[in-house]
Write a protein that binds this DNA or RNA. Sequence first.
DNA 1: ATTTTCTGGTGTATTTTTTACACTTTGCTC
DNA 2: GAGCAAAGTGTAAAAAATACACCAGAAAAT
Lengths: 233, 233
Amino acid sequence: MEKEKKYCYEYPRPALTTDCVIFGFDGLELKVLLIERGIEPYKGRWAFPGGFVQMNETTEEGAKRELEEEAGLKNVFIEQLYTFSDVHRDPRGRVVSVAYYALVNLKEHPATAGDDAKKAQWFSIKKIPSLAFDHEKIFRMAMLRIKGKIRYQPIGFELLPEKFTLSELQYLYEAILEIKLDKRNFRKKIKKMNLLIELDEKQQNVQHKAASFYQFDKQKYEELLHKGFNFEI
Amino acid sequence: MEKEKKYCYEYPRPALTTDCVIFGFDGLELKVLLIERGIEPYKGRWAFPGGFVQMNETTEEGAKRELEEEAGLKNVFIEQLYTFSDVHRDPRGRVVSVAYYALVNLKEHPATAGDDAKKAQWFSIKKIPSLAFDHEKIFRMAMLRIKGKIRYQPIGFELLPEKFTLSELQYLYEAILEIKLDKRNFRKKIKKMNLLIELDEKQQNVQHKAASFYQFDKQKYEELLHKGFNFEI
DNA sequence: ATTTTCTGGTGTATTTTTTACACTTTGCTC
DNA sequence: GAGCAAAGTGTAAAAAATACACCAGAAAAT
């Protein structure tokens, strides 16, 4: 029996979904969180978490809800990426998707799966499997965005634990930009921005000289955001 | 009698529209094209051209279609801006709008109105009237985008006639960025980019020394885009 | 015919920013 | 205490950004 179709409109409407590219950093590699699809279409293929937008929520709220339901993530940095609307992007019919990207600190959000019993897994951006729908296109766009964005806004801190070393920060920039950076020049620039607070604390249980921990100075950043500033690496 | 509602779905769906901020430059000021609304809601208020997305077109195609229908504009530069989805942004019900911005050469597209008998008018960005829906929010976002974009991509050329003088180009940058630029330094940078072709032609019927016309070298630009480059002013 | 007005067009010196580059320090392991 | 591994640090050279003022040429006004 066909399911009841009780929401009727004068003109046809596309379905509206959100999808979210969740970036995480484990100290070495940049990763994204993928969900294995349990149903057709693309059953068994990997995809970014996402779902239908409800009538009483914005697309951003919808994306955040899905983030929590499918990946168990709450209170993360999220920003709109792009709206994908190819007529045939979903074999089930006309579906328009507002894509977001999120940045999470992977150490505080490990292997992970949400309430749903779906299989979730972090993949290095260097080894992404074949994806469902147009999610490869979404991924490419998210990579471009994060590469561009990190050069003029300190979003990198969203990917790190509260306390981090300068080397960790540099590895993160190198992982996102996919280039090598000069240690001395990197530190010079970072320090000139005046957005870091050096803590008294140092690394422990490392088999080499212990590095100082730093913290991001959110208050100073807010001030600078208002005045307009540049964060070029 | 209520209109027939023949498109039925299992779950409710928001309506999907596009809106387009059309920027034009008249040689002095940056302007946007607004349409006076002929019907409720917001009857008599100004708004950006837009309309419902059809089932056989992407949102970009829909935005282009509206551009032609409502403003008589064809083959213009257009790019996605942002998707606006506040639950109460439209008093008629749940409407999600994918906003675009377009750049047109105002001299080749004067006062203008499309097939629709709607009233269309160019407004200086310094004197925008009160707008319908959340269009003031859309406008602010479009201004931020164009200001950011023009610093690293030569989109300015879309706003100028095919042949233009260096002063016209500088006025355009000043109008978009809302700052004054130094003439010699501006010319130095523009010339170093190597994207302009100086023509043999000069201004005519001007009551001062005639300026040389220049042309944008699209071929070189395409090459550079692939290699990745910077267009900082 | 001369002067005025208006915009076009040009170069240099100074400061700031970016880049390239190598050794010492520290703490642990063996 | 020798070896290892990453932390941490400065300077010189090159490149880019900035500040700045006058002459050229065409038309209009006198």
